[in-house]
Design a protein around this nucleic acid. Structure first.
Length: 605
DNA sequence: CCCGTTGCGG
């Protein structure tokens, strides 16, 4: 064996390597000088190959070693962990245990991390228990990675148990708990946790603030949001961090304060596609479709390529305003530039359906090579909004055949479609199946559908019985459905109950007042009618007019009820009349096919 | 004692 200066000089030498060739040279030198029996130099070589990105060579050296010390295992496992080869990490970990090598704390840490990212709770727990056996139960890194495991797998109570037992907690442990609580919907507990952290004298870092910002977004709490933002500014937190700034934009947008969201966005010295996406989605989610679409075009002017979130938001905006042409051009953009992910397919189906191009929606549905619950739900809901109860039912049955388990949303669409197409018995059958076989507790919405279904068929007594069987307090939608049923079949007794309940709930919708008022008129309870009229005047309720929007030759036209301002109003009415006549001749055959022609609004590539 | 290992945006 040679004298020792070599390995000492080996490390800085290898660390200085920027390319693979010198590593290979040093490796060869190590072999010829007989240093390859030194386990320290071997692990350095493995780590260096891995650092150059050549994990195959690293593994080759590793496999050739006659004796593998902890350092060699460490280098190899961490190399796999860095490249996110989770299964290799776990394989090597188990191999190491089998060979009786005593792992050190970092092996446990990365092995637990690998389990969390695979969502392999039992595997991770097994590793954690072994780590405790080896005496690493109090290691902050090991414990924090197990916190992350529990949190990722939704086991918040287990995470809390481990957290409370930790003797030492660093900012990472706190951050893991705070973000974990937020992601598991325990937002208030997360805020509380932040208070505890400060009491223990630990300063929050960027990740902690990120969790709190998400908590505020979730709560829709502007005051808290502003205080978190202020706290960050005062503490001179990493405000230059694009991630934190983007999450502030997202927070203000989610709270619904788009002024502050825009301001936070404008203040960003550097933006990326994600920041644009946050703002676009904010405008789209809050109903400002035109702004969202303008921003989508604007971001491309700055050479940012819209990603999935921006495009999904833009499609949502198109759906809201009926902007079929831009929707189509986004479709083209997606086909040309991005992987056709499920979410994008779902958003496209929704957009086409809401813009009236149901056949385009169905074509996309047919062409998807995998279909998840959300995609099925969207397709079913699309036929639902077009009133095609028959197709809704047929899709629902196909979905069951495809072994996708329907959820509450599926049943909401199904029951609503069945109610609109008057299929009372089928509706009752599936409502019962939902409760008894699928074990889905019926929500307010489901009850409202059933009440509507029964009421429309004039079976208001049954509807009333259903309402009385509810465990929760029935809300506005349910009483409104019952009342309109009672109005139609002139059931004064039940109708009055419904009308009273509605008034107790203080509706802010003029249409609902009109319904109640009409009902009282029918029952000749004129005193009640006049009281109602007075309330309506006093509260100064104005009905937000419903409108439909279409796009003609790239120009948007909105139509309001009784709106005669359009320059082609006469022609439009004539056309509607002739369509009406034609429908009578053909006994109303609905045709929702749209020409999926070229697009006019351009996308910058 | 040192190094490596834990948490992360729309």
């Amino acid at each position: 064996m040679r004298s020792l200066p070599w390995p000492k000089r080996l490390k800085p030498l290898l660390l200085a390597c920027k390319e693979e060739a010198p590593v290979t040279q040093i490796h060869a030198l190590v072999i010829t000088t007989g240093l390859s029996t030194n386990s320290n130099s071997n692990s350095l070589i493995i780590a260096s190959y891995a650092r150059m990105g050549d994990i195959t060579s690293a593994r080759y050296v590793f496999d050739k070693l006659p004796l593998r010390g902890v350092d060699a295992w460490n280098s190899m496992i961490i190399a796999y962990s860095r490249r996110n080869y989770r299964n290799e990490v776990l394989n090597l970990y188990h191999q190491m245990i089998d060979e009786g090598v005593k792992p050190d704390s970092s092996i446990f840490t990365v092995a637990i991390k690998a389990s969390s990212s695979l969502m392999a709770l039992e595997v991770g727990e097994g590793i954690w228990h072994r780590a405790v056996d080896f005496g690493y139960g109090c290691d902050v890194f090991v414990a924090s990675s197990v916190l992350n495991l529990y949190v990722k797998c939704g086991k918040i109570d287990e995470a809390k148990l481990v957290f409370d037992k930790m003797v030492k907690r660093d900012v990472v442990s706190w951050a893991t708990m705070i973000t974990g609580l937020v992601h598991n919907g325990k937002v208030l507990e997360a805020v509380d946790m932040f208070g505890r952290m400060k009491k223990e004298g630990i300063e929050g870092d960027g990740v902690v603030m990120l969790g709190l910002i998400q908590a505020c977004a979730h709560l829709g709490d502007l005051k808290l949001g502003l205080s978190v933002h202020g706290h960050m500014v005062r503490r001179e937190m990493p405000m230059n961090d694009i991630i934190l700034q983007t999450s502030l934009v997202d927070m203000y947008a989610k709270i619904g304060n788009l002024g502050l969201a825009s301001r936070a966005f404008k203040q960003m010295p550097r933006k990326n596609a994600v920041s644009w996406g946050a703002l676009i989605s904010g405008f789209a989610q809050n109903g400002f479709a035109e702004y969202a679409l303008d921003l989508l075009v604007e971001m491309q002017g700055f050479r940012f390529k819209p990603d999935t979130v921006a495009l999904v938001s833009a499609l949502l905006a198109c759906a809201q305003v009926g902007h079929l042409k831009l929707g189509k051009s986004i479709h083209g953009y997606i086909v040309r530039r991005l992987d056709f992910e499920l979410v994008l397919g779902t958003a496209l189906i929704d957009m086409y359906a809401k813009c009236g191009a149901l056949s385009c929606a169905h074509a996309i549905f047919d062409r998807m090579d995998s279909r998840d619950l959300i995609l099925w739900n969207t397709m079913i809901a699309s036929y639902g909004i077009h009133g095609d109860g028959k197709e809704v039912l047929s899709l629902f049955l196909k979905m069951k055949e495809a072994d996708i388990r329907p959820d509450h949303a599926t049943f909401a669409s199904l029951l609503s479609a069945l109610s609109h197409s008057g299929q009372v018995d089928v509706g009752q059958f599936w409502f019962n199946a939902m409760v008894n076989e699928c074990k889905i507790p019926p929500s307010e919405k489901h009850y409202a559908c059933m009440v509507d279904l029964l009421s429309r068929a004039g079976r208001v007594e049954e509807a009333y019985q259903l309402i009385e069987s509810m465990n929760t307090e029935p809300g506005m939608a349910i009483w409104v459905a019952l009342l309109s049923g009672c109005h139609n079949c002139r059931n004064l007794l039940i109708g009055e109950v419904a009308a009273k309940k509605i008034l107790e709930l203080n509706p802010d919708d003029l249409g609902i007042y009109a319904l109640v008022s009409n009902f009282f008129s029918m029952t000749r309870m004129w005193d009640k009618v006049s009281i109602l009229r007075k309330t309506m005047k006093e509260t100064g309720m104005k009905k937000v007019p419903g409108y439909s929007a279409v796009e003609v030759n790239g120009k948007h036209e909105a139509f309001l009820v009784e709106d005669k301002s359009h320059h082609q109003y006469e022609e439009i009415m004539q056309m509607l009349d002739s369509l009406d006549n034609e429908m009578r001749v053909f006994r109303y055959v609905p045709d929702t096919w749209h020409d999926p022609g070229g697009s006019e609004l351009k996308f910058i590539d």
